[in-house]
Amino acid sequence: MIQLKNLTKRYDNVVAVNDLTVDIQPGVVTGFLGPNGSGKSTTMRMILGLDRPTSGSVTIDGKNYADLKFPLREVGALIDAKALHPGRSARNHLLSLAATNNIPKKRVDEVLDIVGLSKVARKRAGDFSLGMGQRLGIAGALLGDPQILLFDEPVNGLDPEGIRWVREFFRGLASEGRTVFVSSHLMSEMALTADDVIVIGRGKLIRQGKITDLTESAVGSVLVRSPQADALGAALRQAGFQVTADNETSLTIGGATSEQVGDVAHENNIALHELTPQRASLEDVFMELTADSVEYSGSQHTTEETK
């Protein structure tokens, strides 16, 4: 289990991670969510002992990362697919990593096979496409056959086929009982991959729990159509709901359930032609949760940004 205790990282004038206390449970995929700049990568680097916490601590099964006997056999990480020398072949890159942790050579060929890079193993890693680079990074994470895997924005820049491959791959790893910790700034991505989620904004913990709880807790809206839309709108406003008129016959009622809207209509003898609950999407929930903490507002979430 990875434990973060009051983990804080301050760079010159930014608090990148702010008093984060969470346990990352084994055997499930945990999504690590937050808008760009919310401190996900910084947290990952502190878990791996690359950045030193300003205060607080990170432990892996109770130990500091630097004290692990064979780090790659306990924790596999992909923090940046480009964090390798472009001039080295994929195979030599993995061979050097394997050597650090006394991992046998044949494991290198195994992981190359798992990620489907056997044919290009002797090509310069610098000539790889983004997707191939990402696969090579995953191969590196798998080298020591570790129980704990960390992936920082693994689908960034991948094509839909690559994204599907990664998603299924992570689910497979978790189903083997491993701890999989994956960060993303896209909620939709996590919805399909993660069991648990940790949501952060501006370095602070916003929410932690099962992904299903997150959607259920979201207050949705209700779409209602009625020949007496005006009267219904007035009655609902009086009952304290937010009413938006879509057109002459249809309204959207925010912060209400369909039962509440139906009851108000019944009390006022108003006929309804349609009553549809609008389930908040995960993306909406995420936006709502992190609205106060988005660092760069603007056009984010319209496209998949590459950082």
Binding site: R45, L48, G49, L50, Y65, A66, L68, P71, L72, V75, A77, I79, D80, K82, A83, L84, H85, P86, L97, T100, N101, G140
Partner: peptide, 19 residues
């Protein structure tokens, strides 16, 4: 400097953290 320029220093130290 090659390790820093390519950021492979992070991959290297994650594999071998005894600096």
């Amino acid at each position: 400097t090659g390790e820093y320029a390519t950021t492979s220093i992070r991959t290297s130290l994650a594999a071998f953290p005894r600096r």
